[in-house]
Design a protein around this nucleic acid. Structure first.
Lengths: 204, 204, 204, 204
DNA sequence: TATGAATGAGAGTTCATTCAT
DNA sequence: TATGAATGAACTCTCATTCAT
């Protein structure tokens, strides 16, 4: 009856689909209304479910925030990062600038701010925030640790300082765009050239 | 009637005091709970009033947000800025870094994010957000337009790019601190040296 | 304009009226649906208000339960008790039986059961339950401490035992009526005669 | 197939085990949280199942209440009652007092109250409540109808009045214990001596 | 028979806001 | 100007129940 297609999904698979849809919907609703402003009914409805589906997949609203952050940071590390690493150092700045321009509003930043507000009241939240930052810093470090680059030869402490600066620069530029300020690739270039630029090739 | 003594306050003065107290209380409550999470009763109570006082002084909750942003940006321009301008270019970076370290959480940034979320639905909010950004950019421009500096001689477009970069850098560093990342003066230095650093003295 | 009548009510008076109406409504709704089954909206509506009025008068649903118990026990001590005390010992048993017959369902008992369920989680609830029982036992003791009665001359411990027995008897009879059992004055007479009966007239 | 070994259980037996476990779990959860406060998931979980098992065995929550009452009253008649009847009349009061002391909270009473609340809306519930009361009254009547006792010779109407009084006394004492009142055997003795005491043997 | 994802009515509670005082 | 009782919309979360598996 049901043709040669991959047929029916198992329960676990359906559950996973539901979760992912809810998470995607949450990303949209958070983007539009912020965390506090997001109604769970809206999240569920946008995912095509009712509120009950939400509560059978997430413990509560905070859990949703945490899960969303975890998933997005994982997805970032799995999907975006390899893309950048595949570029030559020269192309990376441009790639990051383009990527940034697409991320308006910068959901990760807004989510991180919400995490920060709840950090002191919920250890799990604190752990997630920590993981987000650590992952990002690690990703930047990977970007700098390129063979032949003088950055790769810097002492760890120095490399971390630079990673911090890069993260701050990218974060700030992203946020500014979100605030409606016309930030272009030039902004990022100005900011990051001093941090990673001159090192992007010993020849230079 | 109103003798030479410090004596009684006029009606307008009392009103102004009430407003200011409410605004100060709002800054605290917003800092703790965010805009959506802030209850007007809490704001009023922290200021020593009840909600009636609030509604005698502000049209609604959004009005409070707008007024608070306006006041803070005015206060920044009037109080903080002159302090920086009084420093030599060499000292400024340190001054900004210190100032930043005190601003955790960076209320202005959080408020701006709230403004941004309401920008499309409320023209007054949009205007305020614009004013905030313009003022900050103007302030940075003032900082760069120092006599003798090569920055001062840059074309306007270039100067704006640099101001943007500075604002992004400062914003990003501030936000990172808020997220619990251990950002020190070094981060800012790395970020801004490329933008304003080398120019901080024609001799260099 | 507003004639010689006692005119307008002060705010505190209006508030008190509101509270009393809500409490009365709560007694009715609890009677019909039990505590858990009672919806605050129903309570408010039956009192002629909306849910907001409820929450500006009571902290939460448990608070309502506590306040209701307190008020009813006070009212009992102030209103019912003097009535019984005014009777001769011979008439009292009949009076209590009649009073009991009217108390279907026996709201005080049902409320006390709810209090008991929450006793361990809320000290205030425990205190209220304690007060209810103490007041009732005290009332019974007063009833027994009649001049000339041999009960009055019993040692305290013995008097307490008897008070306990009376309370148990009245409680049980009341509950049985609530359960639909046709309990008449005879039941109470049989039960209490052994406890207080022989004393209902030394001549007898 | 089902050999001589203790071996496999038939389908009906398994079903019966499941039902009994659920019923036992329900008794516990009702005791802790009351009927309205009891969650079916909790009942199922405490029995080691999920909600599906519950709905395979009971029509709905009310059905659970009814079945539980039926079972308990049957169990009482089958298990407890013979124990009392085996005692001499003199020992019975003590036996009942001890049994009472163990029944805190007095689940039967609490269940009966729930039944009473639903009596008017559900004929089956009304029937169950009736059966519970009738069974208890019959049990008490059996206790009184002992050979040689003067109670046994009383006219039926009188015997019923006494049974009612006994039930009321026991119920009241039980409830008082549940409310935290320190009710001892003495309370019951005082209450019941007048009803059944002097008759417990003409010799005495 | 038992599971568990999903439903959806309904609950308690919060809170921006109004308005008579 | 400031108070605070009252409103009522909106929200998070619970839970009895259904149904495909």
């Amino acid at each position: 009856m049901s043709g040669g297609a991959p047929a029916r999904l198992s329960r676990a698979e359906r559950r996973e689909i539901t979760r992912q849809r809810l998470l995607d919907a949450a990303a949209e609703v958070f983007t539009d209304h912020g965390f506090d402003g997001a109604a769970i009914d809206d999240v569920a409805a946008r995912a095509g479910y009712t509120r009950g589906a939400f509560y059978s997949n997430f413990a509560d609203k905070t859990d949703l925030l945490v899960q969303l952050c975890e998933r997005r940071i994982e997805a970032f590390a799995a999907d975006e990062l390899p893309d950048v690493l595949a570029r030559t150092p020269d192309e990376r700045l441009g790639w990051v600038a383009d990527w940034l321009a697409e991320q308006v509003p910068p959901l990760e930043i807004l989510l991180a701010i919400e995490l920060a507000r709840r950090r002191d009241h919920d250890p799990e939240v604190a752990a997630t925030l920590d993981r987000v930052v650590t992952t990002l810093l690690g990703a930047i470090d990977d970007l700098m640790a390129v063979e032949g680059s003088t950055l790769a030869e810097l002492p760890d402490v120095e490399r971390r300082d630079r990673a911090l600066a890069v993260l701050a620069g990218v974060t700030g530029a992203s946020l500014l765009r979100h605030l409606g300020v016309d930030t272009g690739p030039r902004t990022l270039a100005l900011l990051l050239d001093g941090v990673i630029g001159p090192h992007e090739g010993p020849a230079a």
